[in-house]
Design a protein around this nucleic acid. Sequence first.
DNA 1: GCTCCTTGTTGCACCTGCCGCAACGGCGTG
DNA 2: CACGCCGTTGCGGCAGGTGCAACAAGGAGC
Lengths: 260, 260
Amino acid sequence: MSQSIQRAAEVLELVAQEPRTQAEIAARLGVHRSTALRTLQTLCDAGLTRRRADGRYGLGYRLAGLANVAAEQFDLREIARPALERLGRECRHTVHLAALDGDAIVYVDKIEQPGMVRLYSQIGQRVVLHTAGVSKAILAFQPSDVVERMLQGHEFTAHTTTTITNRPDFDRALAAVRERGWAEDDAEYEDFANCVAMPVRDAGDSVVAAVSITSLRASADLGTLRGLTPLLAETTAGISRDLGWRPAGPETTDPQEAYR
Amino acid sequence: MSQSIQRAAEVLELVAQEPRTQAEIAARLGVHRSTALRTLQTLCDAGLTRRRADGRYGLGYRLAGLANVAAEQFDLREIARPALERLGRECRHTVHLAALDGDAIVYVDKIEQPGMVRLYSQIGQRVVLHTAGVSKAILAFQPSDVVERMLQGHEFTAHTTTTITNRPDFDRALAAVRERGWAEDDAEYEDFANCVAMPVRDAGDSVVAAVSITSLRASADLGTLRGLTPLLAETTAGISRDLGWRPAGPETTDPQEAYR
DNA sequence: GCTCCTTGTTGCACCTGCCGCAACGGCGTG
DNA sequence: CACGCCGTTGCGGCAGGTGCAACAAGGAGC
């Protein structure tokens, strides 16, 4: 909507990847050198970026402060953290927490294992809807109009040989998720990584987030991960309960409960 | 420089304080409601803010991700962290690390103690130059032209009865710092908090940062804090060494060393 | 049921303030 | 010494940000 703010945000993403020179940023943004400079100056004033000793621009100190505050505002993250850490300790794999954020699904937290390869995901990033386990775990339990809206215009780009590349196949995958209760990513984004994921529900019984266990196929294949679903179920049930969710009794499994 | 980016940064600060409504933000910015909305939408698109369940706007998840990356770019912080944590464990008070960042001094890291009152400082925030211990510890060892530039237009606002309110007194304070090797904040900003601070030097023997120990007067007065200066000296010397600083031999204590 | 309030959204006209350009100076490197 | 890179400044043009008004939708309160 607002061009210059959009550009400023792009600058943040650029210098987050690695500190960059003013000329490089101007080139990547496709704007004149002086324009990039003015943007950078404003951002530096605000402490969001900073000029480093080597002359390149990097992220600013203020970001760390804002993030500290932000973490306090993330009720979900705060609530889920202990459960995620426990899961991480017990399964020894990378754990992700992703949540619905408007019409997108974003990574909200991540537990990494010491010595493990870093995965592509970053906190705050949008999840690739048609490949990630967490997105399937969430989408499978959304009303169809929500799914429709979120997938509108979505490109089913092939990243590996197992990527789901069309809507009908994806719908079948969601149906499978609903049936068995968990979602999988069978090396659909990176051919060396796979994962299992399960949904998290809130007090209104809506699925608002999902937790996944990701591993390198070399260290644990899908079959091994499936063996971890009981552990994962325990984790997601715990988080859901902390969010105020109440396990449905047999009589409340019908749609009548919607009337509270 | 760039108005809309400046506003966007203000928005970030506003919602960092607490989640706010669109109308509130518009009022604080002094702009029309629709303008504020457009700014917010752009920021939300970038993940820097987000619309919360209660309709108010808060900080976005992407900030947490950016901050993770940012922390990796902060060499000083990375290097100093272990020493600060150790100091925190040993003195049981709040520990600050502040650094020169262009023509400002900003908090770079902070060790809080469980159960302690939260202090005003936030990572990334500019230090109040005439009251903070860290700023005196840094300014006392800067070339006079740098001090001049940084204090240009600075207001010596009184925050408590002990605040230094004019330049000559401040210069005398800096001289005292040079003499005894550490700086103090005698309840100059908040009447219930005081601190001691010492400088950190880099490989070129320049003072680039400072570490402070802050406490509530009720829990430890200035006299008690002064007793901690040996511990503080150990910490700053350790960080300085990690930055490549070499303790000066007796013959290099004269100004000749400036010629390297 | 009703109203009142807040918010999201859209269209439009105005004009601010951002953009691109060019030129100069400083600094470090080859 | 030349060259490249960067910061800075002034200026004209115009894109795009801004303010305004009007409407719809949702919620709270009565």
